[in-house]
């Protein structure tokens, strides 16, 4: 071993210096800070969400304390405590589990720090926080109703499949209910033959849809509870020789949910018929305004709804400007 003791001591001190340097690199302290605590950045929706929140907060002159818990509820609780210790003005949170977040809400209440749940409400409790949530059921119902009309206009009967999200997530349940509500009105045209549980897992979605298409080769109507599954859906439909644009005999009437850039791309290229859009810009504004209002001592309702909208082949040109996915798609495809 050629290293001597002096080298070793110098190396240790340099290591310490490097560690303190790292703390400089991540420095973030300001006068007014808002904590933005997400459980993960697992799809474009959440990436776009945190980006829009960041931009909005910076525009309003706030510093941001960001943390991702990686679906670890205990870690997120610790992050909330750290945010409280940092004397933040408010906390915008996306929790993993609607029950496990309640002690964090109580801790925020005790410290008089307003907490807003972004897009995912907590379970019922006596603790006070504000939840921003899309009107999932209505948005899904409106989007699927358009597709049902398309199915009816085709003059044929259609077999339908739905990709369902994690049933522990209220958003997933409401989207499923919106789908059921819509197709329930078109029982003479649409027969639901496959309900595919995905647990918000792309691999499970792909395997489930592939199996469903093999068991029911006549499936010609599809609803996905989230656009983040689009790549897997395209792959499965291509393998089943069913990936075709509107007007082609092989076209599967396809309805999405969320309003991803990929969904806009498919709408534009006529592979998707309709998509339920959560108004991410509006939800962000609601979340930040709720914190400011609570901080100012004003009364805010526990649940603030984003009405969202359905973008369809019929209203696309008129509504696309409100679709967050279109805005991002346009940034990626200038001109």
């Amino acid at each position: 071993m050629s290293m001597n003791r002096r080298d070793f001591t110098v190396g240790t001190l340099m290591g310490l210096a490097a560690m303190s340097g790292l703390t400089v690199a991540v420095r973030a302290e300001g006068d007014k800070t808002i904590a933005v605590l997400f459980d993960g950045l697992y799809s474009e929706f959440w990436v776009a969400g945190i980006k829009i929140i960041r931009a909005d907060l910076e525009k309003r002159g706030f510093k941001i304390m960001e943390a991702i818990s990686d679906k670890d509820d205990n870690k997120q609780f610790e992050q909330v405590k750290a945010a409280i210790a940092q004397k933040v003005e408010g906390i915008i949170i996306v929790q993993t589990d609607s029950n496990a977040v309640i002690p964090a809400i109580k801790a925020a209440n005790a410290a008089n720090v307003p907490m807003v749940h972004f897009n995912r409400p907590p379970a019922q409790s006596e603790a006070f926080s504000v939840a921003i949530q899309a009107d999932n059921q209505k948005i899904a119902r409106d989007a699927v109703l358009y597709s049902c009309e398309v199915a009816k206009a085709s003059g044929k009967k259609h077999q339908a499949a739905i990709l369902i999200g994690n049933l522990g997530d209220p958003n997933a349940i409401q989207r499923r209910d919106g789908f059921d509500e819509a197709v329930g009105q078109y029982k003479d045209v649409i027969d639901v033959v496959a309900r595919i549980p995905t647990e918000w897992d792309a691999d499970k979605a792909f395997a489930g849809l592939t199996n469903a298409l093999q068991a029911n080769p006549d499936i010609s109507f599809l609803f996905t509870s989230s656009d983040f599954l689009i790549p897997q859906i395209q792959q499965a439909l291509e393998a089943a020789d069913k990936w075709a644009p509107i007007g082609d005999d092989k076209h599967v009437i396809f309805t999405g949910f969320d309003g991803f850039p990929a969904a806009y791309g498919l709408m534009k290229d006529k592979f998707m018929d309709a998509c339920g859009v959560q108004n991410l810009f509006y939800e962000t504004t609601l979340a930040i305004q709720a914190i400011l209002d609570l901080k100012a001592g004003q009364k805010v309702e526990k649940l603030l709804l984003d009405p969202g909208f359905a973008i369809t082949q019929a209203n696309m040109e008129e509504k696309k400007g409100e679709m967050w996915g279109y805005v991002l798609w346009k940034e990626a495809n200038p001109g």
Partner: peptide, 10 residues
């Protein structure tokens, strides 16, 4: 601490 039994705890 979390007042919940979660299958993804830890």
């Amino acid at each position: 601490r979390l007042q919940t039994g979660s299958p993804i705890l830890g």
